[in-house]
Computed example of a mutant assay.
Amino acid sequence: MTLTDYLPVYRLRLRTERLELRMPDLDDLVALADQAAAGVHGPDFMPFLTPWTECEPLERGRRTVTHQMSVIAGITPESWMLPLVVVHEGQVIGIQEVGAKEIKATREANTGSWLALAHHGKGFGTEMRAAVLEFVFTGLGADFALSASFEGNRASEGVSRKLGYKADGIDHHVLQGVRRQDNRWRLTRADWEAHRKHEVAIEGLDAEVLASLGLGDAEE
């Protein structure tokens, strides 16, 4: 037996022009932790609802490893999040998450991501989100993809707009004692098709993987 027999989602690969997205092994988690330790965002803007980056580099890396291991351990057909590492030229440069609850009924999925600071501004954010959107719409047959970004996160908002998302309301959160506006974004299948520019190859998405994510023959 191999890991993919016990966790079929490890068969999954998403490939774009420059990137590969995959479930992380232990070496990938170490590489991801190194990138987190090196820095994820500037000091003047906190993009995360949970300010996990506000600590020393070693602790930031440790938090990355333990959090992603807990996310992997929590995958069930009813509720799952796939923490896909983003690999460019053999190097892990960030993470692209995609998740859903009761996707068989809701037909919608959520995404979130971060890139190491050294890899900002190179179009990777758009390309990696495009990869999971292909997975969500073509691979899983979803109708909607959802995202959110704090007001002022122009990079994330720019990716959403570029890929065809439309504003879907706001939420308020208290972060570090301050009220922050969280802008919700929704992408329909029609808008995704109209803005689809990246070619994405989906590998390893077989019946066992679909079943592990709450989808099977009955959904067709």
Rank of each mutant, 00 (worst) to 15 (best):
182 D>V: 13
65 V>T: 12
164 G>E: 10
205 L>A: 05
46 M>W: 07
114 W>M: 03
164 G>S: 10
7 L>S: 02
25 D>H: 13
2 T>W: 07
94 G>I: 03
5 D>H: 02
109 A>C: 09
37 A>H: 02
96 Q>E: 11
55 C>L: 08
37 A>I: 06
23 M>N: 01
25 D>P: 12
1 M>A: 04
8 P>M: 00
176 Q>T: 04
112 G>Y: 00
113 S>I: 05
214 G>E: 06
191 D>R: 15
30 V>W: 11
61 G>W: 00
172 H>I: 11
131 A>H: 03
107 R>T: 08
191 D>V: 08
51 P>T: 10
104 K>W: 15
211 A>M: 00
8 P>R: 00
34 D>I: 01
174 V>T: 13
187 L>F: 12
79 S>D: 10
149 S>M: 02
88 H>K: 12
103 I>K: 04
189 R>G: 02
5 D>W: 03
162 K>N: 11
216 G>L: 01
3 L>C: 00
118 A>D: 14
53 T>D: 09
102 E>K: 04
65 V>D: 06
162 K>P: 02
170 I>V: 15
21 L>M: 06
172 H>N: 10
91 Q>S: 12
42 G>S: 10
122 K>V: 07
129 R>F: 06
42 G>R: 12
17 E>W: 04
189 R>P: 02
197 K>V: 14
8 P>A: 11
193 E>V: 13
158 G>W: 01
32 L>H: 10
130 A>V: 09
68 Q>Y: 15
166 K>S: 13
199 E>I: 04
19 L>S: 02
34 D>G: 13
7 L>G: 01
184 R>H: 14
192 W>F: 15
77 P>K: 08
81 M>Y: 06
113 S>Q: 00
137 F>T: 09
208 E>C: 07
79 S>N: 13
215 L>K: 00
74 G>L: 12
154 R>W: 02
219 E>C: 06
169 G>E: 05
170 I>W: 12
161 R>K: 15
61 G>D: 06
145 A>L: 05
180 R>W: 08
181 Q>W: 00
71 V>A: 08
11 R>V: 10
47 P>C: 08
131 A>L: 00
153 N>H: 10
162 K>T: 14
114 W>K: 10
155 A>M: 00
60 R>S: 05
174 V>N: 08
145 A>D: 00
110 N>M: 10
96 Q>N: 08
113 S>T: 04
219 E>H: 13
130 A>Q: 06
69 M>K: 15
11 R>N: 03
156 S>W: 08
196 R>Q: 05
100 A>N: 06
56 E>K: 10
180 R>Q: 13
184 R>S: 07
115 L>Q: 00
54 E>T: 07
24 P>D: 06
154 R>V: 15
191 D>H: 15
105 A>S: 14
6 Y>P: 02
160 S>F: 04
102 E>N: 15
89 E>I: 01
149 S>H: 14
32 L>K: 03
147 S>W: 08
142 A>C: 15
141 G>R: 03
208 E>V: 01
201 A>Y: 02
198 H>M: 10
11 R>A: 04
157 E>G: 05
57 P>S: 14
186 R>W: 07
